[in-house]
Nucleic acid binder design. Structure first.
Lengths: 336, 336
DNA sequence: CTGTGTATTGCAACCGGTTGCATTATAGCA
DNA sequence: TGCTATAATGCAACCGGTTGCAATACACAG
């Protein structure tokens, strides 16, 4: 707490010769208060640059105007999810800012579920933002049971009825594949995500659709799954090269995997993009800053973050649940 | 707020047939309470998995057990500072977690200084964590004037008396340079940070020391400043190549600049690391995932985050200010 | 058996806001 | 002038904890 002289609405009340309820109402722009009085009070508050005590207000209003961003706590290091999560978090933060909500980081430990009660039942936060995860459903259920408002980044799961925001994975898959077709590639492989992953499924569907639209056939030998990590990008690419040594393009479902794939390709003596064109997904910072800048499908992180913020707050206030999918675009750099 | 039946200590009090003060004390492990009573109350609380209302507690205790992580709000996109900041934030989060403190993101708008009062005088947070910035002092002054506890990531500024945590920049500079010397490079250039930047100054001093220790001379033609952004890495490298076409190594003060530098080198027809070895600084995610993995000086982000958390909380509780510099290490990958 | 000390517990005020209801003043109208 | 509708403000309870101090009980020494 600060060291200022005027710290409570009661102090202001004395200065203005009114009661503290009047000050409270004035500062909250209540229509009950005489406009002149209101201005006078506001001026006094301004002059002493008064700040209301938020714990008190929160207690009284039974809300915290804070939402929790749920992250996994790692002993050390990062995963891809983290990288994307970290980038989107910043966008969420500024989205919330405009709505006068705050963003609290919630670290949950591996198999701990107490965080939900800890933060929600204690009145610490009014809602949650979750990144899609393998264990997504488990947490969804937890939060649904608590009747806690939350929003999920990812494809809506029919079982959970929470708001969602997600990139247009299907279009993304199509954009990437169409680009590879357009630049004249003949054998276009697909390096996907985990089978259960709804995002990856849609991207794959986009790939297939684009292929079929172009009159091509879907060849299972050109398709393999990964798990978004670098290693799986490498092993996935190796498998593809074994099965189809003459492939000349690959659409990889994540940037980090794409970088792994590129390494394998180069080690095998081929060049990117001359021999094999590579398109990634997500447009993480590493795509831009990579030494061989990645052609990739760009998720609109800014817009997504803002929508996550807005729709969660809406859901907190009104209970409305929304599902929105935000457009993606292809960013052509050097890898394809 | 949840939908549970037992929500306040008063509810627990009724169940346990005691007064609410007794419950409060029991739950806070006060030594005033009879051990048996205490256990009984705790059991009841446990059974109903009771969560205390934090706004209420915070109001009463006049503290929030929350610290603010101050970030710049960007209209869009990221800067290098952000990348490092984002990575360290995660570490800070888990550090605070162990101390039962929460982490709140604070977005400050360009030339707005109200955030400080907004969050501190309102009792929203008990202290702040700042990343070193060009405008570091301005904010330092602001916070000092408010008598707000805060901790800074960066070299301690003699004018501000706040706790700090910083990497060992001098050693980092030496490690990088010594490595280049060890692998037999003859003309080692230095691509630094902004002149006013204390970190960069120390890294430069490390470079110079290592050079002198090895019996080499410091050649101003081998040194140029940058601003940590990719572009400055490119232009800096161009200047160096013009001034000294036959240089065979460069120590770059930041990973992002290093990637820019590598691009320029490769465009000029030379190879990395064969013709010119490149060492970066920070070991950001992009260093690992870069297509040409970067040899770089690794800041111990995990430890730094934890120390930022611990020392800030200590400073909040006791007023003690500490300065710690955490060791760095050289990570040899492929660029040198 | 009384006095003093110690261990437990409860009462009630307080933290700093919000808000339902009562109160007062003023205006409008018959 | 008397009466009611309306605007502006104040009173006091409440949100759910914490904590100083009083109260009670029981122990042990004198």
């Amino acid at each position: 707490m600060g060291t200022k002289l005027v710290k409570t609405i009661e102090d202001i009340a004395k200065l203005a010769n009114v009661s503290k309820s009047t000050v409270s109402r004035a500062l909250n722009d209540s229509s009950l208060i005489n406009p002149e009085t209101k201005e006078r009070i506001k001026a006094i508050a301004e002059e002493h640059n008064f700040c209301m005590n938020l714990p008190a207000r929160n207690l009284s209003r039974r809300q915290s105007c804070t939402v929790g961003f749920v992250t996994h706590s790692h002993q050390c290091g990062f995963t891809v999810e983290d990288m994307f999560g970290l980038e989107i978090m910043s966008a969420i933060g500024s989205g919330l800012d405009e709505l006068d909500y705050d963003l609290l980081m919630i670290h949950m430990k591996p198999r701990d579920t107490s965080w939900a009660h800890q933060y929600f039942d204690s009145g610490r936060v009014d809602g949650f933002i979750l990144m899609k995860t393998g264990r997504g459903h488990a947490y969804s259920k937890l939060l649904s049971d608590m009747k806690a408002p939350y929003i999920l980044w990812g494809v809506p799961d029919p079982e959970a009825n929470c708001s969602t925001v997600t990139g247009d994975n299907m279009s993304g898959g199509m954009l990437a594949t169409e680009h590879l077709i357009r630049i004249g590639r003949k054998k276009i492989a697909f390096l996907g995500g985990p089978e259960y992953d709804l995002e990856a499924q849609l991207r794959q569907k986009g790939y297939e659709t684009a292929m079929l639209n172009a009159g091509r056939t879907i060849d299972p030998k050109l398709m393999v799954n990964g798990d978004y990590l670098m290693d799986s990008g490498m092993t996935g690419m190796k498998q593809l090269l074994e099965k189809t040594p003459d492939l000349d393009a690959v659409f990889v479902c994540g940037d980090v995997m794409a970088i792994g794939a590129i390494e394998v390709i180069q080690n095998s003596g081929k060049r990117v993009p001359e021999d094999i064109a590579v398109v990634g997904y997500d447009d993480l910072a590493i795509a831009t800053y990579n030494n061989l800048p990645l052609t990739t499908v760009k998720q609109n992180i800014q817009m997504s973050g803002k929508l996550l913020a807005q729709n969660l707050v809406q859901s907190i206030k009104t209970g409305v649940v929304t599902h929105v999918t935000v457009p993606v675009e292809l960013v052509v750099r050097k890898s394809a």
